[in-house]
Amino acid sequence: MEGTPPRILVVIPAYQEERSIGGLVRSLRERTPYDVLVVNDGSADNTADIAREAGATVLNLPCNLGIGGAVQTGFLYARNCGYDVVVRIDGDGQHEVDDIPKVLEPILAGRADAVIGSRFLGETGYRGSIPRIFGIRFFRLLVNVTTGYRVTDPTSGFFAINRRLIAFYSDHYPSDYPEVDAYILMHRLKARTLEVSVRMYDRAEGKSSITAFRAVYYMVKVTLSFLINSIRRFG
Protein backbone atom coordinates (compact mmCIF):
# COMPACT_ATOMS: atom_id res chain seq x y z
CA MET A 1 0.00 0.00 0.00
CA GLU A 2 1.82 3.07 -1.25
CA GLY A 3 1.04 6.75 -0.99
CA THR A 4 -1.47 7.63 1.70
CA PRO A 5 -1.35 5.54 4.89
CA PRO A 6 -3.83 2.65 4.92
CA ARG A 7 -7.01 3.16 6.89
CA ILE A 8 -7.25 0.53 9.62
CA LEU A 9 -10.31 -0.31 11.69
CA VAL A 10 -10.41 -2.49 14.80
CA VAL A 11 -13.79 -4.25 14.99
CA ILE A 12 -14.98 -5.56 18.35
CA PRO A 13 -18.22 -7.57 18.49
CA ALA A 14 -19.61 -7.27 22.01
CA TYR A 15 -22.50 -8.82 23.90
CA GLN A 16 -22.97 -8.07 27.59
CA GLU A 17 -19.36 -6.92 27.98
CA GLU A 18 -19.88 -3.85 30.17
CA ARG A 19 -17.22 -4.99 32.66
CA SER A 20 -14.41 -5.36 30.11
CA ILE A 21 -15.21 -3.21 27.07
CA GLY A 22 -14.24 0.14 28.57
CA GLY A 23 -10.74 -0.93 29.53
CA LEU A 24 -10.20 -2.62 26.16
CA VAL A 25 -11.28 0.44 24.16
CA ARG A 26 -9.16 2.77 26.29
CA SER A 27 -6.17 0.49 25.82
CA LEU A 28 -6.66 0.55 22.05
CA ARG A 29 -7.03 4.33 21.98
CA GLU A 30 -3.91 4.83 24.12
CA ARG A 31 -1.64 2.23 22.48
CA THR A 32 -2.65 2.20 18.79
CA PRO A 33 -3.47 4.83 16.15
CA TYR A 34 -6.38 2.84 14.68
CA ASP A 35 -10.07 3.63 14.61
CA VAL A 36 -12.18 1.46 16.93
CA LEU A 37 -15.68 0.17 16.18
CA VAL A 38 -17.72 -1.71 18.78
CA VAL A 39 -20.69 -3.61 17.38
CA ASN A 40 -23.09 -3.93 20.31
CA ASP A 41 -24.95 -7.15 19.59
CA GLY A 42 -28.23 -6.39 21.34
CA SER A 43 -26.74 -6.17 24.85
CA ALA A 44 -29.16 -5.44 27.69
CA ASP A 45 -26.41 -3.95 29.88
CA ASN A 46 -24.33 -0.77 29.50
CA THR A 47 -21.88 -2.13 26.93
CA ALA A 48 -22.74 0.52 24.32
CA ASP A 49 -22.56 3.55 26.63
CA ILE A 50 -19.30 2.45 28.23
CA ALA A 51 -17.67 1.74 24.85
CA ARG A 52 -18.75 5.14 23.50
CA GLU A 53 -17.50 6.96 26.60
CA ALA A 54 -14.14 5.19 26.24
CA GLY A 55 -13.74 6.54 22.69
CA ALA A 56 -15.15 3.93 20.31
CA THR A 57 -17.64 4.37 17.52
CA VAL A 58 -20.61 2.18 18.46
CA LEU A 59 -23.17 0.46 16.27
CA ASN A 60 -26.20 -0.86 18.16
CA LEU A 61 -27.91 -3.90 16.68
CA PRO A 62 -31.64 -4.02 17.49
CA CYS A 63 -31.42 -7.66 18.60
CA ASN A 64 -28.81 -10.31 19.27
CA LEU A 65 -27.63 -11.56 15.87
CA GLY A 66 -24.81 -13.72 17.18
CA ILE A 67 -21.09 -13.40 16.58
CA GLY A 68 -21.24 -13.85 12.81
CA GLY A 69 -23.90 -11.19 12.28
CA ALA A 70 -22.10 -8.74 14.57
CA VAL A 71 -18.76 -9.21 12.81
CA GLN A 72 -20.37 -8.94 9.37
CA THR A 73 -21.91 -5.64 10.47
CA GLY A 74 -18.39 -4.45 11.19
CA PHE A 75 -17.25 -5.51 7.73
CA LEU A 76 -20.18 -3.64 6.13
CA TYR A 77 -19.24 -0.51 8.07
CA ALA A 78 -15.58 -0.87 7.04
CA ARG A 79 -16.48 -1.37 3.37
CA ASN A 80 -18.90 1.56 3.27
CA CYS A 81 -16.43 3.85 5.04
CA GLY A 82 -13.51 2.92 2.79
CA TYR A 83 -11.21 1.14 5.23
CA ASP A 84 -8.28 -0.82 3.81
CA VAL A 85 -7.78 -3.30 6.66
CA VAL A 86 -9.97 -4.68 9.44
CA VAL A 87 -8.57 -6.17 12.62
CA ARG A 88 -11.09 -8.25 14.56
CA ILE A 89 -10.63 -8.88 18.30
CA ASP A 90 -12.91 -10.05 21.12
CA GLY A 91 -14.50 -7.69 23.62
CA ASP A 92 -13.75 -9.81 26.69
CA GLY A 93 -10.06 -9.09 27.10
CA GLN A 94 -8.74 -12.40 25.74
CA HIS A 95 -6.63 -10.83 23.00
CA GLU A 96 -3.43 -8.83 23.50
CA VAL A 97 -3.64 -5.32 22.04
CA ASP A 98 0.15 -5.15 21.67
CA ASP A 99 0.01 -8.09 19.22
CA ILE A 100 -2.11 -6.20 16.67
CA PRO A 101 0.94 -4.99 14.69
CA LYS A 102 1.97 -8.63 14.24
CA VAL A 103 -1.27 -9.54 12.46
CA LEU A 104 -1.17 -6.35 10.42
CA GLU A 105 2.40 -6.51 9.10
CA PRO A 106 1.99 -9.25 6.43
CA ILE A 107 -1.12 -7.52 5.05
CA LEU A 108 0.48 -4.09 4.95
CA ALA A 109 3.51 -5.64 3.25
CA GLY A 110 1.26 -7.20 0.60
CA ARG A 111 2.17 -10.78 1.57
CA ALA A 112 -1.27 -11.94 2.72
CA ASP A 113 -4.99 -11.30 2.35
CA ALA A 114 -5.76 -12.66 5.82
CA VAL A 115 -3.57 -13.09 8.89
CA ILE A 116 -4.80 -15.17 11.82
CA GLY A 117 -3.40 -14.84 15.30
CA SER A 118 -2.54 -18.29 16.67
CA ARG A 119 -2.20 -19.19 20.35
CA PHE A 120 -0.34 -22.38 19.35
CA LEU A 121 2.67 -20.94 17.51
CA GLY A 122 5.73 -20.34 19.64
CA GLU A 123 5.74 -20.07 23.43
CA THR A 124 2.48 -18.24 24.08
CA GLY A 125 1.69 -19.91 27.38
CA TYR A 126 -1.89 -20.76 26.38
CA ARG A 127 -3.49 -23.58 28.37
CA GLY A 128 -7.05 -24.50 27.40
CA SER A 129 -9.47 -27.03 28.82
CA ILE A 130 -9.36 -30.58 27.47
CA PRO A 131 -12.71 -30.27 25.58
CA ARG A 132 -11.61 -26.97 24.04
CA ILE A 133 -8.24 -28.33 22.93
CA PHE A 134 -9.94 -31.44 21.49
CA GLY A 135 -12.36 -29.27 19.51
CA ILE A 136 -9.57 -27.08 18.17
CA ARG A 137 -7.58 -30.12 17.07
CA PHE A 138 -10.65 -31.60 15.38
CA PHE A 139 -11.30 -28.41 13.41
CA ARG A 140 -7.60 -28.08 12.61
CA LEU A 141 -7.72 -31.49 10.93
CA LEU A 142 -10.98 -30.62 9.15
CA VAL A 143 -9.59 -27.38 7.73
CA ASN A 144 -6.22 -28.83 6.78
CA VAL A 145 -7.67 -31.85 4.97
CA THR A 146 -10.49 -29.99 3.23
CA THR A 147 -8.76 -26.78 2.13
CA GLY A 148 -5.07 -27.57 2.00
CA TYR A 149 -4.33 -24.68 4.37
CA ARG A 150 -1.96 -25.55 7.19
CA VAL A 151 -3.43 -23.91 10.28
CA THR A 152 -2.82 -24.39 13.99
CA ASP A 153 -5.65 -22.28 15.45
CA PRO A 154 -8.78 -22.52 13.26
CA THR A 155 -11.11 -21.11 15.92
CA SER A 156 -9.10 -17.94 16.58
CA GLY A 157 -11.16 -14.77 16.68
CA PHE A 158 -8.07 -12.57 16.42
CA PHE A 159 -7.34 -11.81 12.76
CA ALA A 160 -6.83 -9.12 10.14
CA ILE A 161 -8.11 -9.01 6.56
CA ASN A 162 -7.50 -6.74 3.58
CA ARG A 163 -9.92 -4.77 1.40
CA ARG A 164 -10.62 -7.72 -0.90
CA LEU A 165 -11.88 -9.91 1.94
CA ILE A 166 -13.69 -7.01 3.60
CA ALA A 167 -15.75 -6.60 0.43
CA PHE A 168 -16.47 -10.32 0.14
CA TYR A 169 -17.30 -10.88 3.81
CA SER A 170 -19.65 -7.89 3.74
CA ASP A 171 -21.94 -10.01 1.56
CA HIS A 172 -20.90 -13.56 2.57
CA TYR A 173 -20.03 -14.37 6.16
CA PRO A 174 -21.06 -17.35 8.31
CA SER A 175 -23.75 -16.39 10.81
CA ASP A 176 -22.89 -18.66 13.74
CA TYR A 177 -19.41 -19.60 15.01
CA PRO A 178 -17.89 -18.25 11.79
CA GLU A 179 -14.14 -18.70 12.22
CA VAL A 180 -13.87 -22.27 10.91
CA ASP A 181 -16.34 -21.71 8.05
CA ALA A 182 -14.35 -18.67 6.97
CA TYR A 183 -11.50 -20.91 5.83
CA ILE A 184 -13.76 -22.44 3.18
CA LEU A 185 -14.64 -18.97 1.91
CA MET A 186 -10.99 -17.95 1.80
CA HIS A 187 -10.11 -21.19 0.02
CA ARG A 188 -12.78 -20.56 -2.62
CA LEU A 189 -11.31 -17.10 -3.22
CA LYS A 190 -7.75 -18.50 -3.30
CA ALA A 191 -6.93 -15.99 -0.57
CA ARG A 192 -3.39 -15.93 0.78
CA THR A 193 -3.44 -16.72 4.50
CA LEU A 194 -0.79 -16.68 7.20
CA GLU A 195 -0.71 -17.36 10.91
CA VAL A 196 1.36 -15.43 13.41
CA SER A 197 1.99 -16.15 17.07
CA VAL A 198 -0.13 -14.12 19.50
CA ARG A 199 -0.95 -14.24 23.18
CA MET A 200 -4.43 -15.14 24.37
CA TYR A 201 -5.73 -15.08 27.92
CA ASP A 202 -8.72 -16.27 29.90
CA ARG A 203 -11.69 -13.93 29.84
CA ALA A 204 -10.95 -10.77 31.81
CA GLU A 205 -14.55 -10.62 33.05
CA GLY A 206 -17.73 -12.67 32.79
CA LYS A 207 -18.22 -16.30 31.85
CA SER A 208 -18.03 -18.13 28.55
CA SER A 209 -21.40 -19.08 27.06
CA ILE A 210 -19.98 -22.35 25.68
CA THR A 211 -21.11 -25.18 27.97
CA ALA A 212 -20.29 -28.85 27.41
CA PHE A 213 -23.59 -29.30 25.57
CA ARG A 214 -23.00 -26.23 23.43
CA ALA A 215 -19.48 -27.46 22.66
CA VAL A 216 -20.91 -30.66 21.15
CA TYR A 217 -23.59 -28.67 19.31
CA TYR A 218 -20.86 -26.34 18.05
CA MET A 219 -18.75 -29.18 16.66
CA VAL A 220 -21.67 -30.86 14.88
CA LYS A 221 -23.12 -27.65 13.46
CA VAL A 222 -19.81 -26.20 12.29
CA THR A 223 -18.78 -29.48 10.68
CA LEU A 224 -22.04 -29.68 8.70
CA SER A 225 -21.85 -26.00 7.75
CA PHE A 226 -18.21 -26.38 6.74
CA LEU A 227 -18.98 -29.31 4.44
CA ILE A 228 -22.01 -27.55 2.91
CA ASN A 229 -19.99 -24.39 2.25
CA SER A 230 -17.28 -26.48 0.60
CA ILE A 231 -19.69 -27.30 -2.27
CA ARG A 232 -21.75 -24.10 -2.23
CA ARG A 233 -21.41 -21.53 -5.02
CA PHE A 234 -21.22 -17.83 -4.23
CA GLY A 235 -22.43 -15.18 -6.63
Rank of each mutant, 00 (worst) to 15 (best):
P5N: 14
I8W: 12
V10I: 15
V11H: 05
Q16K: 15
Q16H: 15
R19Y: 14
S20Y: 11
G22K: 08
G22W: 09
G23D: 10
R26A: 07
S27L: 12
S27Y: 07
L28G: 01
L28Q: 03
E30V: 09
T32N: 10
T32V: 07
Y34C: 02
V38R: 03
V38N: 01
N40Q: 08
D41Q: 10
G42F: 03
N46A: 12
I50S: 04
A51F: 06
A51L: 08
A54Y: 08
L59G: 00
P62M: 07
I67A: 07
I67N: 08
A70N: 04
G74D: 02
F75R: 03
L76V: 13
A78C: 05
R79Q: 12
G91C: 11
G91A: 13
D92K: 14
G93L: 12
E96Y: 11
E96G: 01
I100N: 00
I100C: 01
P101L: 09
K102T: 07
L104R: 10
L108R: 13
L108T: 09
D113I: 09
V115F: 10
I116N: 02
G117F: 08
L121S: 03
T124C: 05
T124S: 05
R127W: 07
G128S: 14
I130N: 06
I136D: 01
R140V: 02
R140A: 04
R140T: 11
V145H: 03
V145E: 02
G148Q: 10
V151K: 02
V151R: 02
D153L: 04
D153T: 04
D153H: 13
G157Y: 10
G157P: 03
A160Q: 10
I161A: 05
I161K: 06
A167L: 12
A167R: 15
F168M: 09
H172K: 09
Y173C: 04
P174Y: 10
P174G: 04
S175M: 15
D176G: 02
V180S: 06
Y183C: 02
I184T: 00
I184M: 04
L185K: 12
E195I: 08
R203C: 03
A204R: 14
A215H: 15
Y218D: 08
K221C: 04
V222K: 02
L227K: 06
I228S: 05
I231T: 12
R233I: 11
F234L: 13
F234M: 12
